[in-house]
Structure formats: C-alpha cells, structure tokens
Design a protein around this nucleic acid. Structure first.
Lengths: 198, 198
DNA sequence: GCCAGTCATTATCATTTGTTAAAAAGGGAA
DNA sequence: TTCCCTTTTTAACAAATGATAATGACTGGC
C-alpha cells in the first residue's frame, strides 16, 4: 500500500471500516491529482461526476449570493471525504462551488462506479450511507447552533470541531460560516482572548 | 385506488414519478394510522424503523437542549415525505423527536423493505435518492438563509416556502426555526404588516 | 529588503435582537 | 355566553451585531 492508499485507509477506518477485498475494489478505481491553492475545482452549474477523498490540505464548499458575497457552507480538512456527489448535484449539475484553500492532494473516482459497487457490495453500501449520514449530522449540528446558540457560543463550538482551522483559513470565510461579519468575528476573538465567555 | 393511495401518488408525482408497477410495490407495503395532535410519534433515543408519508396534517422534527428549550429542525405539511429513516437515525436510534402539530394521517412502511426494493428497482432507488437530495437542499437553503439573511428576510422567505403555516403553527416553533425569540418574531410581524420591509 | 495589496483589528455609532414584565387577544369547556 | 388558560403583542431597557471608516499587521513578488 502506498502513502496515498494509506490515507484512504485511514478515512475508511474513521468512517466505516471495510474488508481488504472491498478496499481494493475502491483503490482500483481511484485516480490522484494535485489542486493548487485557490483553485475552484468544482463549479456551480457545471457537470461533475466524481467522488473525492481529500488526502492533504483544506478546502471549502460555498455559494455566491446576488450581492456577490460568498456564503460558506462547509470546510473539509484532510483526511476527509468530500460531500458525496448526490448531495451536491441536481440534474447532473453542481449546486455548489468547491475551492482549495491550501494546495490539495485528492483521490477521485466516478460516482457512477460507486453506485454500481454499492448495489453489489454491502460493505461499500454501508460506508456510503455512513458518509451520507455524517453529512446530514453535521448540517443538523449547524442548524442546532443557529437555532440555539449566540455567535460567541458558535465560535467556541467551531474551535472545538474544526481544531486549528481558525489559523489556516481567511476570517471572512469563518465569519460567513458562523453567520456573522468578519468585524464581529474579530470582536468575539478579542472577547474570548480576554476571558469574556459570556 | 383509494383516497390514501391517491395522496401517495400525488407525493410520488411531486418528487419523482414512477411506473404503476413500482407504485404497487410500495402500496403493498404500507400501513395507515392516525396520530392525534401533539403526540410525539418518534422519540429521540428510541428505536424507529419506518418510513412515513404524511397524508394529512402538519408535523415537525425538533430537539430539546440542556435548558429544556425546543430546537426546531423542520416542518412537514401534507402531502409530504417525512425525513428518510437514514437521515434521522444513528445506530438504530432516532436522533430527533417528531411531533404531530395537528391531527395526522400517515402511511408508513418498513425502512428495511425499502432498502431491499431500492436494490432491485431502479425507479424506487431514484425516488429515494431524490427524497434524500430534497432533504439536503432544504437544509442548504436554510444554511444559506442563516449565513446571509437578516431575521426579517428569513421570515419573508419562510412565508414564501411554508405558505400559510404561520397561521397554523405556534409562533415559538416558527421563531426557533428562524433562530430568533418569539418576541422578536412578533416585532417582525408588526414591522412587515406596517410595510417596513427593511 | 521594500512595496503594494490583502487581511485583521479597532473605534464609533446605528440597528437589530434579547430579556423581563405586563397587557391584550384568542380558544376551548362548562 | 362566561371563565380560564394559553398565546400573542407591546413596552422599556440591555446586550449583541452590523456598517463605515481608519489603522495596523502580514505576505508575496520584485
């Protein structure tokens, strides 16, 4: 197993461990590529038919509103699975932009191949279902935060969930993720640094 | 086709139309029941292994935080599909509460039976995938609202999406859904009634 | 190393939202 | 109807967040 495959193995073990045989069915499918920092590697409104493992680096999904502002949806920190194709695609077209925040190493493979594998292989079906469920759970967690926490509490939770990301990602992206302005984020950072937790 | 089956047909036609043959595979599985107003018919932390069609009435999914406050997640207005089992269940246990807001007529059937049907029947697989995608899209729409709209704009959007629900559902539930207090909701309702749209 | 451009912080003031409490409005049962 | 209970609205004040603008800090290219 080469290094890239070892990272993929780590991802599977984290999400839903599968047998060596099933694992080889996946690794036979994947190809690898490097994506330079800032590149938007999935465009909203364009065709994309791959699933992705993030082996190295940080990326994000986002939208642009009519005013031209970015709307942050999710962060992905290697090692991680990108949002499954089915959850980010409608009528074959991507619903979101995905951008490399740092240089990125990814493994990718055809979503159609995955659908075929899922039909015949129960382990892979369970793995894919777990990825899907994790995606949903993250969104529900975020929903809960917006419905029940102040911006300061959301920042505290963000730090707990996305450990270290605050120092690797531009603050306007984090602010948008938290549903506040970057000025407010700066203020909350100062308050927390001063020990004001309420 | 009886009335209940006609409502189920309406739901399928809305989400992803399927052949009469596939439709009968579903209707052969379903059972019916009435759920009285206010009953919590799925309990967080308990086993639940059904999929549901809401044929008549309104219900909601929610959580309770440590302070005892309800956290609204979603509303369901007949005719509609309830959140799919896989998106609301972890390790066999429900992640959310589901409660009837009005008296409810539902059709329900085993989620295991659905998984089996999905394996052999492509139409039903596509239908289920579309339900899943719609669920995700609603969550992303809500995410976008929190990341980019004021509370007043979220209320305006809520009225557009959940037409008429504002007069059928207790306001504290709507307020929690919008991420504000019911006092703020009342204020926004007054402002909008007075024509203050900014 | 310097400079330009980007990013983060700070300050000030306006606006929005939350909190607490009280009043008004609505709905169901006898 | 009338009464009681729940829900919604209003008021007054406090706290949080947004907007604008200016300052300070960092970074990449030359």
């Amino acid at each position: 197993m080469n290094i890239a495959e070892k990272v993929i193995k780590i991802i599977f073990d984290e999400v839903y461990p599968i047998s060596g045989q099933s694992f080889r069915q996946i690794t036979q499918l994947v190809e690898y590529k490097t994506i330079p920092k800032n590149e938007v590697f999935i465009q909203r409104g364009r065709t994309n038919s791959s699933e992705y493992f993030i082996l190295e680096g940080i990326c994000r999904s986002y939208l642009v509103n009519p005013d031209g502002d970015d709307i942050m949806i999710s962060f992905f920190q290697a090692p991680a699975v990108l949002s499954p194709h089915i959850t980010r695609t409608k009528d074959g077209l991507s619903l979101l932009y995905f951008q490399a925040i740092t240089d990125l190493q990814v493994a990718y493979f055809s979503e159609k191949a995955l659908v075929e594998l899922m039909i015949e292989n129960q382990e892979i079906r369970f793995f894919a279902n777990t990825v899907l469920l994790d995606e949903l759970i993250r969104k529900v967690e975020k929903e809960i935060g917006f419905a029940s926490l102040t911006a300061k509490e959301r920042l505290i939770r963000f730090r707990a969930v996305y450990d270290g990301l605050e120092n690797k990602v531009p603050h306007p992206m984090i602010a948008s993720y938290l549903g506040i302005t970057n000025i407010s984020l700066s203020r909350l950072r100062r308050d927390l640094a001063e020990g004001k937790r309420n």
